[in-house]
Design a protein around this nucleic acid. Structure first.
Lengths: 348, 348
DNA sequence: TTGTAAGCGTTATCAG
DNA sequence: CTGATAACGCTTACAA
């Protein structure tokens, strides 16, 4: 039933176009046209070729196609990790939208390493992908590289961190929601707010700096000794509580870098016998799937919309490299759940 | 068909090896050897070439390399989704292990569609990847295709579902842990256990069938009307509770397909004012990061070990296609947390 | 140590 | 409508 092509070792080899040429008697050109739905070939011939191909299991070699065509129909997505559910959910959305547009997605996880990021960008922009969606590493050390890619006409879109207005990008308006959250905390009696997560006090970027700005604006205090910096991930809770236990005090309200951080905090709080929000108020970010389960107050972004916007910007850039730079800010929504409440009585 | 990157005349083009030839005066061969760390080139020449390359930003075109070399140093990973944190965590581990071995990873999300899976396998095995790690779709409709890939000498490793012993694969010994969990439930007074998740009563595969077997063995009852089938994901809770509310009763203990399912259940239980485990006992699977936060009892698998084993099997297959089939069963561990407890008093 | 040239599997351009 | 044929950018024998 199936015609198999054998090699010297008498194992069936994957068939190539040569086998199809031999089998059908048509030329390479005809076969190529048949597979690409191009004009210049009769419907009957195409059918015959495709049928024969199906029989021997022929599929045009993608590596050869990519090479010859000069494009890959592949979009590279560069993220720091997948442990933060925000990223895995975003990737899934991006993959979905890309697939709809006839593109496949390829993911690189940088683990926040600037060299990994740089290698990936250089490699992927050189002929692995047609465009890149990048959540740039915090340090901003690769900005020159982004600039270089841009100068070569290679389409990139930056996420969350924009580095000025020179690159296409998508940004979330966290500030508005964070302000609402802080006002709520203020209303229920909190004066001081700590931060747990990525970022430190040296670089004026990211959520921490948003928080500092807003606290000043609202005339609230920043709980610096209660804050834990440069941490993001599932160890956040352990790190934070060991610091607080050492200090003999813990903050009454904590704003975190991400839901992952917040959930980790929540989880260790519970296992230490604390009650949320009675003993401590926690605020997350991104409304990850698990946030609802623990009743985490957080910031919600429509990730499906976000993915569509990102891909739309990327496609616009691929279509016309000289279009003006597009930076889009997406709205977000405050999600109030059980994890925030009045200041602990004893601490007031 | 695909949008092409527009190449204006007045924009810097990405440099190719021709530019290097012109710039350095060396031949293509020399340049290739310089970039591949091969012998047959002087150290001085190599330095000169690499320096020049760095200056003009040259990077060997990966598409051309892949094509010419006949391999890609890329491993394809085919998973149903990333919404289930188990998969995103597994992917991250696999990516890590692959990277260590000099391979990059590429992810396809099938959304449990057999055609998406089939297309991906055909495409990727034809020259996008050197090997595939597949969590096969439940229906098993593509087994013939796996067989075909195998007959072509293309390395694949199957996860979780093995379809006999014909393919390399990695399997988790869920049964042992599930038995312990059921014994625990029995001890605290449960007689009937329901199932919520993927799978249905027709096909004798997966967790549900493990559960049925074990219930018989332990002389416990299966709560069929309390079970909810063919669901997995964040809507599980809503679906389950709407069914239970309609029926006017709900099960006292539920075994779920995954932590994602369990957490969804948990989350909706809480928002309906129920208390866990007072009103209902829930058992998950895979000990996802968020499981700890809600105190979910579950089954833990060492995902880092799992990734290493998978990649090891794949590499063995890539090295020697005629090695005997390897199927490895990984142990798992019961994680008892707060989500399981005695039968509700009123229901006893 | 270096240069030269064949060829990988396609697509695209040209004649027929 | 069809079939040769020339690239595409690289790797790798082989020649110098």
């Amino acid at each position: 039933m199936t015609t198999e092509v054998k090699n010297g070792k008498n194992r069936a080899q994957r068939p190539t176009f040569r086998d199809l040429v031999k089998l059908t008697g048509y030329s390479q050109g005809a076969i190529s046209r048949a597979f690409n739905g191009q004009p210049g070939i009769g419907e009957a011939t195409r059918e015959k070729i495709l049928k024969a191909a199906r029989e021997i299991g022929y599929y045009p070699n993608p590596a050869a196609r990519n090479f010859k065509r000069g494009y890959t129909s592949r979009i590279g997505i560069v993220l720091p990790n997948l442990g933060n559910t925000n990223y895995s959910e975003l990737y899934e959305q991006l993959d979905l939208v890309n697939a709809k547009g006839g593109y496949s997605s390829i993911l690189a996880i940088t683990h926040d390493s600037e060299t990994v990021e740089a290698d990936t960008l250089l490699h992927w922009s050189a002929g692995e992908t047609d465009g890149l969606i990048i959540n740039p590493i915090v340090s901003g050390k690769n900005v020159d590289l982004y600039r270089k890619l841009k100068s070569w006409g290679f389409p990139i879109v930056l996420l969350y961190r924009l580095f000025g207005s020179e690159f296409d990008g998508v940004y979330i308006d966290y500030k508005a929601c964070l302000r609402q959250a802080l006002i709520y905390l203020q209303d229920v009696g909190h004066r001081k707010v700590a931060y747990v997560g990525f970022s430190n006090l040296r670089k004026p970027v990211g959520k921490l700096w948003l928080l500092l700005e807003l606290l000043k604006e609202l005339e609230m205090e920043f709980d610096e000794t209660g804050s834990v910096f440069d941490i993001a991930g599932d160890e956040a809770g352990i790190r934070a509580f060991s610091q607080w236990n050492l200090q003999g005090r813990r903050p009454t309200a904590v704003v975190t870098y991400s839901d992952q951080t917040a959930i980790s905090l929540y989880s260790d709080a519970v296992s230490m016998g604390l009650e949320i929000p009675r003993d401590i108020s926690i605020f997350g970010s991104d409304d990850v799937a698990g946030a609802k389960a623990v009743g985490l107050s957080t910031i919600r972004v429509d990730r499906s919309l976000m993915a569509r916007v990102i891909v739309d910007i990327l496609h616009a850039r691929m279509r016309d490299f000289d279009a003006p730079t597009r930076i889009q800010t997406l709205p977000c929504e405050l999600v109030l759940r059980r994890s925030m409440g009045p200041v602990p009585k004893s601490k007031k």
